[in-house]
């Protein structure tokens, strides 16, 4: 379309800056290692051989919040752990996204009592919720791809308003 049709195969692509930035953000998003409980095992299984998350750009899981863009809250967050979670979220540099993996992180899950935060969106703002107890590795990958679609739809105008 446009310039490519006239010039032929000269190795030039035209696009908008937004599309280019969003495409590069989705292709190399590094998750932060935040596995708390049983969902962490399924997250590790999603990273390992059979359901490989490296093919989506998530080659390594960075333990340091300063070097990661995505926080996958995998597991139940207790009241003692909630301040730690918020502190780690604050330490991540912009742009950052949060996937809440599993039932306990999304809504408190099986545990409706004094010790578990009923939904991690009381502590950090969540972009994608993945349901399951624990969600299959394929469900987590589906959640990650949903997040990629959300990121591809982001506009610079929204970021400027913040």
């Amino acid at each position: 379309m446009g310039v490519e049709q006239k010039l032929g195969n000269m190795g030039i692509v035209t696009t908008t800056l937004e599309n280019a930035v969003n495409w590069s953000r989705t292709n190399a998003m590094w998750p932060m290692l935040f596995g708390l409980a049983c969902c962490a095992i399924e997250m590790m299984a999603a990273q390992a051989s059979d359901y490989d998350m490296s093919r989506f750009g998530m080659e390594l899981m960075r333990p340091s919040p300063r070097q990661s863009d995505l926080m996958i809250v995998a597991g139940r967050v207790s009241r003692k752990m909630a301040p730690v979670l918020r502190r780690l979220y604050d330490q991540m540099p912009e742009p950052k996204w949060v996937i809440s993996m599993g039932d306990c992180a999304s809504c408190g899950g099986v545990f409706n009592n004094y010790a578990i935060v009923q939904g991690v969106d009381e502590v950090v703002p969540v972009d994608v919720y993945v349901a399951g107890c624990p969600p299959r590795p394929e469900a987590l990958i589906h959640g990650v791809l949903t997040l990629f679609e959300k990121v591809k739809g982001e506009k610079f105008v929204d970021l400027a308003k913040v």
Partner: peptide
Amino acid sequence: GYLHTGVEKNMEAKTYLKAEVMCDR
């Protein structure tokens, strides 16, 4: 204590069969 789930107290509020769901976790 960073993963304290209160399972022992929560199992007291459910019947024997329903409480088994919590013990897997």
